[in-house]
């Protein structure tokens, strides 16, 4: 197309990428370059901060003036009994929250299956629309709502419980140190259940209706139709999400725990992400960085393991 005829006459190889194509190749890259630079700065450059884990770094003093201490901060995790105890406590919380999350990840599946069983279309829509709202408010707002509902002086929950005689005196739920894991998972599902079910509802809607009709003809009960048609239809999607959450086993995120933490429940609510934040703000930067670093490494290993598992089981990778 773009090869000038003069070049052909001089006997130059005619099939080579035209100059215009070559230009496009680099032009496209140059157009993307500013965005790639932003990606580098905010996602890759922070890895260089791992270096602080090897110094006795104190905020405010330049790194060049701080002593290199090698693996000191990593060693304290196992060498210092108090530190070891702390880390074990935090790990226990992390594992507990993540395990509870994995076990209850069938909730949205059950929600979706039961919701599709409801015959009145308007009611399905009503439930789906309203149960999704909490997903779109921040954890601070969830906490603010909880604060008002459960407060001791004038919260509606305590009032009703006392009036019904279920509890003798008003109880400060949010500052309680018991059942923290369970209340946290409960709040999590209050916020995420409706939203989590949407994907499965879409998957169920995509299942071939003829399967159900054929089962009907064969006299299958409602339960058998769910078990033999709906559930197998959902499983691939469920499996992918489950593997991704295995990859995120050590990343609970911190927003929920940050919002709900207080002096009373701190021991049971501190997951790794929150712990790192808390120790950093107690000004122990190098130790926080060391824990941060270990966490990143573990989570990458888990992700690769989950991905390998996915390749073996369903011949497809998740990332």
């Amino acid at each position: 197309m773009g090869v000038p005829s003069g070049e052909l006459l001089r006997g130059v190889e005619p099939v080579r990428p035209s100059r215009r194509k070559l230009q496009t190749k680099y032009k496209l890259f140059l157009l993307a370059l500013p965005f790639l630079a932003v990606t580098f700065v905010f996602y890759y450059l922070p890895v260089s901060g791992w270096i602080y884990a090897f110094y006795d770094f104190i905020p405010g003093i330049p790194l060049s003036d701080t002593p290199y201490v090698g693996l000191k901060w990593f060693n304290t995790i196992v060498a210092n009994p108090t530190q070891t105890g702390e880390v074990l406590r935090v790990l226990k919380n992390t594992v507990a929250m993540s395990t509870l999350g994995l076990v209850t990840s069938v909730f949205p599946v059950i929600f979706a299956i039961l919701l599709t069983e409801i015959r009145a279309g308007w009611y399905r829509k009503f439930v789906q629309t309203l149960t999704t709202i909490p997903n779109f408010i921040s954890w601070i707002l969830v906490y603010a709502l909880a604060f008002s509902l459960f407060s001791v002086d004038n919260g509606v929950v305590n009032h009703v419980l006392v009036q019904l005689g279920i509890v003798d005196e008003e109880f400060n739920f949010l500052a309680s140190s018991s059942h923290v894991w369970l209340t946290m998972i409960a709040w999590y599902w209050w916020k995420s259940l409706g939203w989590g079910a949407i994907l499965y509802l879409a998957v169920i809607a995509g299942i071939d209706q003829e399967l159900y009709e054929a089962a009907e003809v064969d006299g299958a009960s409602r339960f058998r139709k769910i078990w033999h048609i709906t559930v197998p239809g959902i499983i691939p999607t469920f499996f992918v999400l489950l593997l991704l959450s295995i990859g995120n086993f050590v990343n609970n995120g911190m927003e929920q725990y940050f919002a709900f933490q207080n002096a009373m429940n701190k021991d049971a609510i501190e997951v790794l992400d929150l712990y790192v934040y808390n120790i950093a703000f107690a000004n122990n930067f190098p130790f926080a960085t060391a824990v941060s670093m270990l966490k990143s490494v573990v989570s990458v290993i888990l992700l690769f393991a989950a991905n390998t598992l996915s390749k073996v089981v369903r011949d497809e990778s998740i990332i």
Binding site: F29, V41, S48, D273, V276, A280, T289, L303
Partner: peptide
């Protein structure tokens, strides 16, 4: 293209951690 695209996507699964990010 493939390298750049992958290097953007992979950031969904990997982070340096809160503190290194803060220091940056």
């Amino acid at each position: 293209r493939q390298i750049w695209y992958r290097s953007v996507v992979v950031t969904m699964y990997f982070s340096a951690g809160l503190i290194p990010w803060y220091i940056t």
